[in-house]
């Protein structure tokens, strides 16, 4: 609780918490209840403007935009967070082992990540999606793998520099095992750049997911995600720009919120910033 109050004492923490809270609320609502069925088409009400009936209007198939945004929130957010969580977990494990243990393990891990990095992330995800077939699970796995190398390399680099600190040597001198030393002394000091990367990655994943959806390899339509809503709006952008602006706005708000929260989190986790307001 002190941690949350510490977060909300910072301005960026307050804004970040609010925005992220809003997005989460939307996602939760979308999961449980939407005004209309988000996939039900109504050709009598195509491109309907905002009205009491459709608060945010309808799209080219007459689907209720509010429902689609809410429902899309739950899908997009779930995909994003799971993807980032997976990439970060895998990257931390691989990068920490690679950087701390070194030797042949390091070479092996670096060969693996370099092989992955040889392909553009999206291309890698695309080819994986072709194999896995379009599904939410497939998107998560493919994107996580695509972003794994950058996390691995970041963690490895940070671990390599922290490893040289004398408190790590002191821990070894005290008789602590390497796993304990890694977990207690090395990783906590690698958190700051990792948080920055993770929050940035959330944005990339949101966009990458929409790119995959656009190519028909993401979450299969008609299930809404912010990404495929954005993609679908492309054809009618000149006629009805709102269709593109709305999901774009949702993505932007989420990104701003997550980034602010990430900054605040990084500061709050660092005891050196205790006194900062």
């Amino acid at each position: 609780m002190t941690f949350l109050s510490d977060l909300s004492r910072r301005l960026n923490g307050r804004i970040g918490l609010t925005l992220c809270g809003l997005v989460l609320l939307a996602a939760l609502t979308g999961l449980l209840w939407t005004p209309y069925d988000p996939v039900k088409t109504d050709f009598m009400a195509r491109f309907a403007g905002a009205s009491a009936e459709h608060l945010l209007g309808t799209d080219m198939y007459g689907r209720d935009l509010l429902s689609r945004v809410l429902s899309g929130a739950s899908v997009s957010i779930l995909i994003c967070f799971l993807t980032v969580a997976l990439a970060v977990t895998g990257g931390v494990v691989l990068g920490a082992l690679s950087g701390f243990v070194g030797g042949w393990l390091d070479r092996l891990v670096m060969m693996f990540t370099e092989a992955l990095m040889a392909f553009p992330g999206l291309l890698l995800a695309l080819s994986l999606m072709v194999i896995l077939g379009p599904s939410e699970f497939g998107v998560i796995l493919a994107l996580a793998l695509a972003y794994l190398p950058s996390v691995t390399r970041l963690v490895r680099g940070t671990v390599l520099s922290v490893r040289e600190k004398e408190y790590v040597e002191a821990s070894v001198a005290l008789g602590n095992g390497w796993l304990y030393t890694l977990a207690r002394h090395v990783l906590p000091n690698c958190v700051a750049p990792l948080i920055v990367l993770a929050t940035t990655m959330l944005g990339w994943v949101l966009l990458a997911e929409s790119a995959l959806s656009f190519l028909g390899l993401g979450v299969p339509p008609p299930a809404p995600t912010w990404g495929n809503m954005l993609a679908e709006a492309r054809g009618d952008l000149t006629r009805e720009p709102w269709l593109g602006i709305l999901p774009g706005l949702c993505i932007s708000v989420t990104l701003v919120g997550v980034n602010l929260l990430g900054d605040a989190l990084r500061d709050a986790l660092d005891p050196r910033n205790d006194r900062a307001a």
């Binding site: 004398e166 002394h185 660092d270 005891p271």
Partner: peptide, 25 residues
């Protein structure tokens, strides 16, 4: 055995700014 032995041989480092983990009390 090595761990127990390590507790009997200690080291004090030159730079007190890098020899203490900044995230621990």
């Amino acid at each position: 055995a090595l761990r127990r032995l390590r507790a009997r041989m200690q080291i004090i480092f030159q730079d007190p700014y890098s020899s203490l983990n900044p995230r621990m009390r």
